[in-house]
Design a protein around this nucleic acid. Sequence first.
DNA 1: CTATGTACGTACCGGTCAGTAACAAAGTCA
DNA 2: TGACTTTGTTACTGACCGGTACGTACATAG
Lengths: 210, 210
Amino acid sequence: MPTKTSTTQLTETAKPGEAGQHQPRAAERILGVARNLFYRQGIRAIGVDEIVRQAGVTKPSLYRSFSSKDELAATYLRAYEVEFWERFDQAVAAHPGDPRSQIRAFLTRVGHRAVQPDYRGCGMTNAAIEYPEHGHPARLVGEANKRELRRRLRAMAAEMGAEDADTLGDGLLLLIEGAYVSGQLFGPGGPAASVAENADRLIAASLKAR
Amino acid sequence: MPTKTSTTQLTETAKPGEAGQHQPRAAERILGVARNLFYRQGIRAIGVDEIVRQAGVTKPSLYRSFSSKDELAATYLRAYEVEFWERFDQAVAAHPGDPRSQIRAFLTRVGHRAVQPDYRGCGMTNAAIEYPEHGHPARLVGEANKRELRRRLRAMAAEMGAEDADTLGDGLLLLIEGAYVSGQLFGPGGPAASVAENADRLIAASLKAR
DNA sequence: CTATGTACGTACCGGTCAGTAACAAAGTCA
DNA sequence: TGACTTTGTTACTGACCGGTACGTACATAG
């Protein structure tokens, strides 16, 4: 995944006086380490001790900025989601008014990333699988993201002129999720490499079918 | 603490005379409970104490039959895989010589199950996501299953006469994995309901291109 | 020069984790 | 009957879990 620093500002309370960056710098280090470890190894697999150790801080510092480990995980996922939509919107912006090309551009990138040796899929999908319990803070982030993604894919399918736009949009979502999962199961040479091609074929079939 | 001899064995106990197969009574109960808990809540989320408690046995009994929790998880997945292929082969047997109908039959069932309220996806896929570490016993079972499924889907695509059979087979695999994941993310009304329809459209597009 | 707030660390909590040792009880089969 | 096998019982280990009470260094504000 992109190892951007992306200082997710949290509780920016500009103190009266000068406008220097003055918030707890421990929280940033903690979130940065948590994002790496949670994504690569899973949330349940990583303890808070390991996070604070790698961040070079102490446990109370973690709990001053995050009310619980679950909330830290949810914060990690919210930051993850921001980057996800950046990638998605980037593909959309590259082909204005051409949703089919937008999908192809997005999935070409997904397919490429998904066959990297240490690919670990979608952090939000993985978190929802790790936490099946309804209402878990981490799971809620993933569920909301997937609902919105579904909504947008269906809208793009309608924009393409597909008669059964909802079915096509859902089909695209299935292919995307399949690429996320298969990417980390197969590694290089896996079926995710063909996600863009399969999506385009499915689009073609859904447009000309009727 | 009923430590006396009259321990009111749990109801039916065909102990005397009859030559019932009495091999590992405790191991079966343990595996049965583990399968339920591991599938529904995840492997990392369930401790061995909870398993032995619900199975009505003790921890040493678990470790007499299974060398470790990881090995118990792998055993659960191997049993899960047996049932998976039973369902798959059942769909195949229902439509001899007609791979397109075989896929449709299999995915119709998958789509139906995937929109049940408490659907939890594929146990093997979930386990691989829970354990990204290469070589983990549970992960190995899932990886082997997916490789074999890919092989069979590609063979069926070739049997259909698809020009690019490998791409079609991989596309079907992506749709299947997507249904597993989306089913547990969306619940009823989710995109997994359309997996059979989308797969059939993809097949049609891949055949027509010939 | 205090007074206050902030950022942080030390040390610790009770609970749970997977896994084991040693021994007793009970059923199986000859 | 007696040998064998399977299971239960109790108690324990050491590591780790998420989370916290409390003290301290330091920067300002008055």
